[in-house]
């Protein structure tokens, strides 16, 4: 019995990590855009959907998941750049409420546009043949190989982002943009191009997340919105504008959410009937990340790693 619990725990820890790394891909773009440009972008979930749809259709056409995945990332980045040039650019100097309204409108446009192009039935997308199957964990449990690959991709992206921001000229400008927007403009940096680039990069990461997860879930209209809500929780917990905060926040939310779903019903079973425990447990599990957010904000109102002091 003890062994079963230990393997179950290990497996759920991996599940939490996998959810966390996917949330990180979403949250890092969101937090960069907010930190550098001061923009609240609700349409970030639409880039996630664009990535998944492009990957699904290109994979179906070419038969290669890798080609599809690349197409998904490129499509999300291109759509992101286009949206920045056409719409977002006009919003930087507007109040946050205007930004929320405009980007919410973008969600509706993207959703209906996707439905118009692809229909309302979900698309089919599966992991590539070589990544199906499972590996055996210490303790004997089997774990899907594809989920391990997702974790690895997430970790690689995190390292890549860290190097980009701390070691390159672009990263230096991003950091400068975070601390003083007007000053880097005055120093002769082409702000407009920097903003488009950051926005497209965030969109590409969202597209990557959508494409990777799309192979596990269903590729359908509106798939980005539930993830977007969690990604907002992540950046609030981590501290808005902080990549490091996004990473810690994402993993924290991923692990807490997963563990809550699995172990809370069992916990409530100690003092109520199994059917009640299942109901109450899953209801509390659904609230858990928000409770976590409230607790963290009570002690650290700016999040764990606030970017602006």
């Amino acid at each position: 019995m003890h062994d079963v619990t230990a393997t179950l725990f290990l497996e759920q820890l991996l599940n939490g990590l996998q959810l966390g790394t996917m949330l990180f891909l979403m949250a890092s773009g969101l937090t960069l855009v907010f930190g550098v440009m001061g923009l609240i972008n609700l349409a970030h979930g639409s880039f996630y959907m664009v990535g998944a749809y492009a990957t699904a259709s290109v994979t179906a056409a070419t038969g290669s998941f890798l080609v599809g995945l690349s197409a998904g990332i490129v499509a999300a980045a291109a759509v992101g750049a286009l949206v920045e040039l056409l719409v977002i650019r006009r919003l930087y100097h507007r109040p946050h409420l205007d930004q929320v309204l405009a980007t919410f409108a973008l969600i509706l446009i993207f959703s209906e546009g996707t439905r118009w192009l692809f229909g309302s039935s979900p698309l089919w997308l599966s992991p590539p043949e070589m990544l199906t199957g499972f590996v055996t964990l210490p303790g004997g449990a089997r774990y899907p190989l594809y989920r391990l690959v997702i974790i690895a991709v997430g970790v690689l992206v995190a390292i890549g982002l860290y190097l980009l921001i701390s070691r390159t000229r672009l990263g230096m400008r991003i950091r400068a943009g975070e601390s003083d927007r007007e000053m880097i403009g005055a120093l002769g940096v082409n702000i407009a191009r920097l903003y488009t680039l950051i926005f497209a990069m965030g969109a590409a990461l969202a597209g990557l997340a959508g494409a990777m997860v799309g192979a596990l879930q269903s590729v359908q209209v509106g798939m980005g919105e539930p993830v977007l809500i969690l990604a907002f929780v992540v950046i609030v917990i981590g501290g808005i504008g902080s990549i490091k905060g996004a990473l810690f926040g994402a993993i924290l939310v991923g692990v807490v959410d997963t563990m809550g779903r699995v172990f809370l019903p069992g916990f409530f079973r100690h003092f109520m009937s199994p059917a009640e425990a299942a109901g109450v447990g899953s209801a509390v599990a659904a609230m858990l990340v928000y409770i976590l957010m409230a607790l963290i904000l009570a002690f650290k109102p700016k999040g764990l790693f606030a970017a602006h002091g």
Binding site: L8, L19, V213, T258, V262
Partner: peptide, 10 residues
Amino acid sequence: QTDYAAEIAQ
């Protein structure tokens, strides 16, 4: 819900 890894482990 879109991810069922936790339930599948259960």
